[in-house]
């Protein structure tokens, strides 16, 4: 039920007290003149009240004592010593090593530019001058996975395992995909590739030495990824529907 002059967004903002006074006055006048507008506003008020009730019910769930204790311990140790990023463990599943990987095509095309704390190497290529964009990367299989694989899914490529992590648009309006490649001799590579007119270009690769136990990665690696994503103006991850639409667009 749309009204000629007043969008749902504006009427909702009025109900939520988010409108500037002059606009709010106009909405009030419109609501007095048209009972359908008044009803629409009242409906938004009702959903707000209901949701507040629901929030109160959830709020009554007590905070687990062990969680609070752990948080207090974190605060205590942060006070006691300077921040130590190696203590911050990223919270991700461990993975199984692949068994029959032949890493030559992938590994040969990756430049290890700088050693970093936490067992990571970074290789970054903004203009494709050297390193990452060797003739072999992305390999046809990886490019195919970038073209089609929905985020969250994995696929075997070149003997390793490719996992699509997320898709987003950068500030240049290019579709970019974050993905991981895992293989015993490569370790794990967290990578970002963006789609230009000529195809997929790898723009960032963080290569992690695999811990002997296949355990947790230092969070610093993901923080570095965050910094990189910030630097290219990465938008929020696309929803699965938006991603599917963007990939269809790429396929055309």
């Amino acid at each position: 039920m749309k009204h000629q002059d007043w969008s749902d967004e504006t009427l909702m903002a009025y109900a939520d007290g988010e409108l500037d006074a002059p606009v709010a006055k106009e909405v009030e006048a419109a609501a007095r003149a048209d009972p359908r507008i008044a009803e629409r506003i009242a409906s938004f008020g009702k959903t707000r009240d209901l949701l507040k009730e629901a929030a109160r019910a959830r709020a009554s769930d007590p905070l687990p004592p062990q969680l609070e204790a752990k948080v207090r311990e974190t605060l205590r140790s942060a006070r006691a010593e300077a921040p130590d990023s190696s203590k911050v463990t990223a919270f991700r599943q461990s993975w199984e090593r692949g068994s029959n990987f032949r890493p030559t095509t992938i590994a040969a095309s990756i430049a290890l530019a700088a050693g970093l704390a936490g067992g990571f190497f970074v290789a970054q290529n903004r203009d494709g001058a050297d390193g990452l964009r060797g003739p072999a990367f992305p390999t046809p299989e990886i490019a195919g996975a970038l073209d089609t694989l929905a985020s969250g899914r994995t696929q075997d490529v070149d003997g390793g395992e490719f996992q699509a992590i997320a898709s987003f648009m950068n500030s240049d309006g290019e579709l970019c995909r974050e993905f991981e490649l895992q293989a015993p001799e490569l370790g794990r590579m967290v990578s970002v590739a963006c789609r230009s007119d000529t195809g997929w270009q790898q723009r960032l690769a963080l290569i992690e030495d695999v811990a002997p136990d296949g355990g947790y990665a230092p969070a610093s690696s993901l923080e570095m990824l965050d910094i990189y994503l910030g630097s290219i103006g990465a938008g929020a991850p696309l929803s699965s529907d938006d991603e599917a639409a963007a990939l269809r667009e790429v396929a055309r």
């Binding site: 687990p64 062990q66 969680l67 752990k70 948080v71 974190t74 605060l75 942060a78 921040p83 990023s85 203590k87 911050v88 990223a90 919270f91 969070a219 923080e223």
Partner: peptide
């Protein structure tokens, strides 16, 4: 999931403190 939520809160706290 309650267990994951608690770990998530703890992770967020660690990052916030850092």
């Amino acid at each position: 999931r309650a267990d994951i939520a608690d770990d998530l809160v703890q992770t967020a706290v660690e990052r916030a403190v850092a």
